[in-house]
């Protein structure tokens, strides 16, 4: 009788173990890892949306075909005035000195040169890319003036100042970084 009870208990314990194993087994799933040559992520770029709808570039440009083209159809609105460090300047802060140049005082009471934004009020992505890769400013923009513009664009890109055109600038990151390096 004792032997029988022991066998029963042992069987119950074995059944419990099997049941627990079964529970563990049922929780496990198979994770199939694909070939490394095949990306595990597909990316939808906002520029692809622009190619389809022609929107989001801020300039009301007509739709353009192809994601590669639309990438440079984006637009970055620029401030009216930008100081030499790349910070936007309120018109009321701008002072014209006797040398004919424009300045603002920063928080340390130091005078900084102030430049105008581009006459159109914005740059297209293509304009920025062309200027950065050719190392020459867009037509009608001085070298130092453009340098201030690039400082501003970089600050917007890295969100050091609030500004529009972030998506456009992210696509130009490598060009901006190479120009300033």
């Amino acid at each position: 009788m004792t032997d029988m009870n022991e066998r029963t208990n042992e069987n119950e314990r074995a059944a419990e173990r099997a049941s627990e194993d079964g529970k563990v087994e049922s929780r496990r799933r198979v994770l199939k890892l694909g070939a490394l040559a095949v990306p595990a992520v597909a990316t939808l770029s906002p520029n692809m949306a622009m190619a389809t709808y022609g929107g989001g570039n801020g300039g009301g440009s007509p739709p353009v075909g192809g994601a590669g083209v639309s990438l440079m159809a984006c637009t970055v609105p620029m401030p009216e005035f930008i100081d030499e460090k790349g910070f936007p300047v309120d018109r009321r802060e701008v002072v014209r000195k006797s040398n004919g140049r424009y300045y603002r005082k920063n928080e340390k009471d130091k005078w900084l040169l102030v430049y105008s934004g581009p006459a159109e009020g914005s740059y297209s992505g293509q304009q920025i890319k062309d200027a950065l890769t050719s190392w020459s400013p867009p037509p009608g923009v001085g070298q130092q003036e453009f340098q201030a513009h690039v400082e501003y664009l970089t600050k917007v890109r890295y969100q050091q100042v609030n500004g529009a055109g972030l998506t456009c600038l992210i696509s130009l990151t490598s060009n901006l970084d190479a120009y300033r390096a």
Binding site: G34, A40, V41, A42, T43, L44, S45, P46
Partner: peptide, 12 residues
Amino acid sequence: LSGETHILSPEA
């Protein structure tokens, strides 16, 4: 930041 949308595979 990039405005991009990524579709992940089950493994990703």
